[in-house]
């Protein structure tokens, strides 16, 4: 398959659907086929939550669910088990260095980043989703990092725009600084 498979995973309430949607819009704008699927538990907060993107070629309706992840973002240990079996030697994993203690095995590349810490520095731990988006984009280059700025601004409440843009920039910087191990 020539497509790209990306998963944002963590616990409920971390804003994973939002970042998947922001990224999805960018691929749609480039006329790529985009499918975003989700997994969650009945509680609104806590519990496993994930948002998956499958990006295909223009006009091609492919299988919309992930089967071999190219990129996996993990923001909470609770999400680790659900991605076993989807990780392979070419998968890049980006995980929060504090909240993820035991990452899934088998990945070729693994980055442990202080995502939550940077989110707090931007103003709130709730911005960890945007930090992780920045980190993913800067080390994967799945899309032009600058292209997402407007999309983030139009996807968050007015009074949180500056904070989220700051969080995004912090994520971008994290991704640039770090080398995958």
């Amino acid at each position: 398959m020539s497509g790209i498979e990306i998963r944002f995973s963590g616990s409920g309430g971390q804003g994973l659907q939002l970042v998947a949607r922001i990224l999805g819009e960018e691929f749609s704008a480039k006329q790529r086929y985009v499918a975003i699927s989700q997994g969650y538990e009945p509680t609104s907060r806590g519990g496993l939550s994930r948002a998956d993107l499958v990006i295909g070629d223009q006009g091609k309706t492919s299988y919309p669910l992930v089967s071999r992840l190219d990129y996996l973002v993990i923001l909470d240990q609770v999400a680790v088990a659900a991605s076993k079996g989807l990780v392979h030697a070419d998968t890049l994993i980006i995980a929060d260095c504090e909240r993820v203690t035991e990452p899934p095995s088998g990945a070729g590349k693994y980055l442990q980043l202080p995502l939550v810490k940077e989110a707090l520095a931007a103003g709130t731990s709730r911005a960890v989703n945007i930090v992780s988006l920045g980190a993913l984009v800067s080390c994967s280059r799945v899309c032009d990092p600058d292209a997402l700025v407007d999309k983030i601004s139009s996807s968050v409440p007015q009074r949180f725009i500056d904070m989220n843009i700051d969080a995004y920039q912090r994520g971008l910087t994290l991704g640039l600084d770090e080398k995958a191990v």
Binding site: R21, G24, S28, Y33, V34, A35, I36, S37, Q38, T61, P64, L65
Partner: peptide
């Protein structure tokens, strides 16, 4: 549920 919550073109 997968298609109900799937976002696609």
């Amino acid at each position: 549920e997968s298609i109900a919550h799937l976002v696609e073109s």
